[in-house]
Design a binder for these strands. Structure first.
Length: 320
DNA sequence: AACGCGACCTGCGAGC
DNA sequence: TGCTCGCAGGTCGCGT
């Protein structure tokens, strides 16, 4: 999937195009894309139709749109046992999106031809010069959309990256840690968590419960930049190692963000459909056999956790 | 309790 | 040409 930079690029695009607009019609073309909405297609549509999108928020790789109005609010009031005569509560539910490996959220005119892997179409209230459809396209169907309750975050408001701070988070994303660039990310707490684990450092930085937003690409890139072997035990890192690693993750994420998100091929496009190009700056991921730009040694690929790990065998030594 | 692995999907390129 | 295999950026739930 899109990792943090790609998702953030999508978030910014969506925010511009959908904030304040109302979801008027929902069409689910493939129910597998809303399988995380346990109450089914009818309930999904009923929750969304007539609801207004208030904002677009991200935590790690999860995106959500807090909603107001629509049938979902009735549902939430019932769930909380509120009398219907009480004033409408603050938004307590949201449309949640996860892009999985291949998901895209596209803003398009209804006249545009249907994408091959179009899964959900959301029609938006009309607005001059704004396309009227939000389409969820997903080849591999690891991603999806669902409506979820918003709950208080365990560690304060979520925000950052110019986002408006939100005190609530979808229940399904409540376990996701802050990302390395979140102003409330705690390096010390992360370090202590590493020490309490007995696993490879790469497994740890891919664990969204410890630090969010990092996927296989940026894990390899951050480890390369920090000169750490992916198999180094997480509980063997000393504070300077942890700091170097998180600083490296920040650097690769920021660089990718400034370049509009990484994209290898047409699967990864931003909300307007244009590709990023950070792939050109990769130093380790996918660079098998090419010389390390620091030392000239050939980058090696090894299989780890059923996926590839790319590293420089000279710069990233594994002490025994 | 924590960890590691398979499952969930489609499509593409390499090799035979 | 067409088959199989391995591979692709993620997450979750199950088994140990």
């Amino acid at each position: 999937m899109p990792e943090l930079p790609e998702v953030e690029v999508v978030r910014r695009g969506l925010q511009k195009w959908v904030s304040g607009r109302t979801l008027e019609n929902v069409a689910v073309h493939d129910p597998r894309s809303i399988r995380r909405h346990l109450l089914g297609t009818e309930d999904f549509m009923g929750n969304l139709e007539g609801a207004q999108v208030l904002d677009v928020v991200r935590r790690g790789k999860f995106l959500w749109m807090p909603l107001r109005g629509g049938h979902g609010e009735d549902q939430v009031q019932q769930d909380f046992g509120l009398a219907s005569s009480q004033p409408a509560p603050a938004p307590e539910y949201a449309l949640v999106a996860h892009l999985g490996m291949s998901g895209q959220l596209l803003i398009e005119s209804a006249a545009q031809p249907l994408e091959k892997h179009l899964k959900v179409t959301l029609s938006l209230s009309s607005k001059a010069d704004f396309p009227e459809e939000l389409r969820f396209v997903d080849q591999r169907i690891f991603g999806g959309l669902f409506v979820d309750k918003l709950v208080p975050t365990s560690d304060g408001a979520t925000g950052g990256y110019g986002q408006t701070a939100h005190p609530l988070i979808p229940a399904a994303a409540a376990h996701i840690a802050r990302d390395p660039l979140d102003e409330n990310f705690s390096l010390e707490a992360f370090h202590q968590r590493l020490l309490s684990k007995k696993t490879a450092i790469k497994t740890a930085i891919l664990d969204q419960n410890l630090v969010s937003g990092i996927g296989n690409i940026y894990a390899d890139e951050a480890l390369w930049l920090a000169k750490l072997h992916y198999l180094k035990p997480s509980n063997s890192l000393r504070r300077p190692d942890t700091k170097r690693l998180i600083d490296a993750a920040r650097e690769v994420i920021l660089r990718a963000l400034s370049e509009g998100g990484t994209s290898f091929d047409s699967l990864y496009v931003n909300v307007n459909g244009s590709s990023g190009y950070f792939a050109r700056s990769l130093q380790a991921y996918g660079q098998t056999g090419k010389p390390c730009s620091r030392c000239g040694q050939k980058i090696v690929r090894e299989s780890f956790m059923n996926r590839g790990s790319h590293f420089c065998p000279r710069c990233q030594r594994l002490p025994k």
